[in-house]
Design a protein around this nucleic acid. Structure first.
Ligand SMILES: [Zn+2]
Ligand SMILES: [Zn+2]
Ligand SMILES: [Zn+2]
Ligand SMILES: [Zn+2]
Lengths: 148, 148
DNA sequence: TATAATTATGATAATCGTTATCATAATATC
DNA sequence: GATATTATGATAACGATTATCATAATTATA
């Protein structure tokens, strides 16, 4: 957890009148030091290592706090499972997802972004947000597949 | 239900060795004659009018058959509820969604499509599919909001 | 057309990811 | 340290969807 992230989290907890729970802090540290788009279940598995008696509820509660203070964002993918990604130091981006190994690549294409804005306007919509998920087979998995 | 859609459905049922159930057929007709991105619950409500004793299970089963024969596609949006859209006679498209009234607009932008393909290549991915959801406020809802 | 075999249907239970509840433990305030 | 309030873990509840099972409808067979 970077110092600035810690400050954001601490400030949020303070202004909400929360108290400092060890598990929540630890889960936040684990989450923020893992550069992956973790699911609640994956984060729970990591948290278990540090806190063997930790509950699923505590993991979900920690994620809610992280989302609340803007350090985290919930993304619901096509399998119906929510995954959580870091927001601090991450510009807006879309996702390339390997359908074989599940690898996530964060991508941005300014030309696409501009065309999306035009698309909103063309249909008289006030833009709010968008979501672009690109599913395919990554280099590594493609090579492996060709070798078999 | 268009004649060609009916043939596709009937052929699928025949080749799978299914039988012709009245409710399933009726639900398929209701779905295919409603040009909306219905949820299972919405379709169930419509089906109830024609078959007051119809079950939710039958609606889900009918949707599964419709998806199986390629007349329908399941789309899971950010609220976690699946919606189903017609595939027959519908080219690939993305969705503009009004966050106020829930209106769906099917859109396609060939320039965006091409740039997506490039994006796949740039990251050494074999393209499979993508999903672009654009959320905003539609013209009607925007005017209404300004009037208030 | 009767009969047998098999699928369709409706009621309901089960599932899965997530959230709510509640008793107890930890933390903060005084 | 006493008091008040939040954090935590265990577990129940939830909502959307799927599975199970008994019965009804359909198809195949005779
Ligand atoms: Zn891969
Ligand atoms: Zn991301
Ligand atoms: Zn609208
Ligand atoms: Zn559509």
């Amino acid at each position: 957890m970077r110092p600035k992230e810690e400050i954001i989290l601490e400030n949020y907890i303070a202004e909400k009148g929360f108290k400092r729970g060890a598990q929540r802090k630890g889960i936040a540290e684990i989450f923020l030091s893992t550069e992956k788009h973790l699911s609640a279940e994956e984060l729970y598995a990591l948290a278990k290592k540090k806190y063997p008696s930790v509950s699923f509820a505590t993991v979900y509660r920690a994620l809610k706090v992280l989302c609340g203070c803007g350090l985290c964002r919930e993304l619901r993918f096509d399998d119906g499972v929510s995954r959580y990604e870091h927001l601090y130091g991450h510009e807006h981006h879309d996702h390339l997802i390997c359908t074989v190994c599940g690898r996530f690549v964060e991508v941005t294409d300014n030309a696409i972004e501009r065309l999306q804005t035009k698309l909103f306007k063309r249909h008289d919509f006030i833009p709010q947000r968008h979501r672009l998920d690109l599913y395919g087979i990554c280099d590594k998995c493609g090579k492996k597949r060709r070798a078999d």
